[in-house]
Design a protein around this nucleic acid. Structure first.
Length: 427
RNA sequence: GGGGGGGUUCCAGAGCGGUCAAAUGGGACGGACUGUAAAUCCGUUACUUCGGUUUCGAAGGUUCGAAUCCUUCCCCCCCCA
């Protein structure tokens, strides 16, 4: 199965420039996707692009991952309703390094001819002067053409306007494509569907400035069935960096997918074959409450993004927190095992003496620890029946806790709602 | 440079001298139900030692009393040149 067919049956393909598929079938081709360093980690939203590169490589082509040290300085207006804040150079550099090391995990950089490659567009922009740029690049495209782009039109029609900086973004990205086409024979650029305009600016530049041809493929933006934004949870974005989103949270994010989303996502975010997926779906429909699809999805992505060990810890933690999580179980664990189960979950320490004297629940949760931001909120939540200590609901905000409540003589387990656990240990 | 319109609690958006910690909607969080789901219903959504205390771009002022009136400043948007 060729690359484009692969994307097609997985439901990933959004738009493809005529002639692209034929070109890819002819020979090994190199193609790139750009990632702008707007943060110090990629998040799950980037996984579609990562998977696209993986499929590209598996189909025998050469994937190039571009980290936008230069484009990140400008700010892509696509999909943004307001002007962005510029990041400082230090922050950008840091972000670029973080992204590079994350991307390395997903692709094979040492497999001969179609080894993956990593580039940073800052390398070819740092010595490009403004005058050279507007003469050599800007001259080839009209403002009329640039203004017709969706990303620009929306902002012109909108309320907040758009700086010249962001208006220029498409030229900068367009030049990237031109540069890679010229220097590295990179003929295809891929990206999310919101990138179509920017990518086409590149192929246009290649046509006009280089009299060459280049191709474009965009992938579907991931949507949730309920229309809300993909990749966000209560606690913010779901990052690929385990320090920002623990593997347990990461696993949980995927496990909590709705049935209909799971059916499309398992095609997009796993490498399972068509028949494997169909078999899983059949199994899932027979017993939806077992969430076979969600589990398969969560497991494969967690392993790819983190590791087999990280998955095991995530499973163990999930099992305790949502399965047969009893106090006896916790009591039977050693201190180290308890800490492992709670790894990646919020933890607090209080002094043993303080607890020995007795602390009321409100003070403990709002003052001694920051389970709640204020006492008022802690009180309201406790009265509303939303708080448990050691798996037992407490109803009285003034309940006094002391050393006798400790599990293993070390820990208190606080729960806000059902899903939010906090470990409080004494020292 | 000239003219106009704005900045209200997480967001959108009412309020336009006291009855305003501020309508309504959304979001978020919690409860019931459940599959750690969806839908639905209910509750909470500035801080508090529950006496009060700080909020409506910022700083002053008028008033018994201001988010609401005045002055200055900062910021945003639109139009004209």
């Amino acid at each position: 199965m060729n690359f484009v067919e692969e994307l097609r049956w997985r439901g990933m393909l959004h738009d493809i420039m005529p002639g692209t598929e034929e070109e890819l079938n002819k020979k090994m081709t190199s193609g790139y996707i750009g990632f702008d360093p707007t943060a110090d980690s990629l998040h799950v939203g980037h996984l579609t692009q990562i998977m696209t590169l993986i499929h590209f490589q598996r189909a025998g082509h050469k994937p190039v991952a571009l980290v936008g040290g230069a484009t990140g300085m400008v700010g892509d207006p696509s999909g943004k309703s307001a002007e962005r804040n510029l990041l400082s150079e230090d922050v950008l550099n840091h972000n670029v390094h973080c992204l590079e090391s994350q991307l390395k995990k997903f692709l094979d950089f040492n497999c001969g001819a179609n080894s993956a490659e990593m580039v940073n567009n800052y390398d070819w922009f740092k010595n490009f002067t403004f005058l050279d740029f507007i003469r050599d690049v800007g001259k080839h495209l009209t403002v009329n053409y640039m203004m017709a782009k969706d990303s620009v039109k929306k902002r012109l029609e909108g309320e907040t306007g758009m700086s010249f900086t962001e208006f220029s973004y498409q030229l900068v990205q367009g030049y990237d494509f031109y540069y890679l086409w010229k220097e590295k024979n990179c003929q295809v650029q891929m990206g999310g569907s919101d990138q179509w305009g920017n990518i086409v600016t590149g192929t246009e530049l290649i046509r006009r400035k280089g009299s060459g041809s280049a191709f474009a493929i965009t992938t579907q933006l991931i949507k949730k069935a309920d229309g809300t934004k993909f990749g966000k949870t209560e606690s913010g974005a779901v990052w690929l960096d385990p320090a920002k989103t623990s593997p347990y949270k990461f696993y949980q994010f995927w496990l909590n997918t709705t049935d209909s989303d799971a059916k499309s996502w398992i095609r997009i975010f796993t490498l399972k074959s068509q028949s494997e997926i169909e078999a899983l779906e059949k199994e899932h429909d027979l017993a939806p409450h077992l969430r076979i699809l969600q589990k398969a999805l969560a497991e494969e992505i967690t392993i790819r993004t983190h590791s087999q060990e990280a998955l095991l810890t995530a499973l163990k933690t999930s099992d305790f927190l949502f399965g047969n999580g009893t106090l006896e179980f916790l009591n039977s664990l050693s201190k180290e095992d308890v800490l492992e189960v709670f790894e990646g979950l919020p933890q607090f320490t209080i002094s043993r003496n303080e607890l020995a004297g007795g602390i009321n629940a409100t003070d403990l949760l709002a003052e001694k620890t920051s389970v709640f931001p204020s006492k008022g909120e802690a009180r309201k939540m406790i009265s509303g029946g939303g708080v448990s200590i050691n798996k037992e609901k407490i109803a009285d905000p003034a309940l006094i806790l002391n050393s006798e409540n400790l599990i293993n003589g070390e820990f208190l387990v606080a729960q806000k709602g059902k899903k939010n656990y906090f470990l409080i240990s004494v020292e």
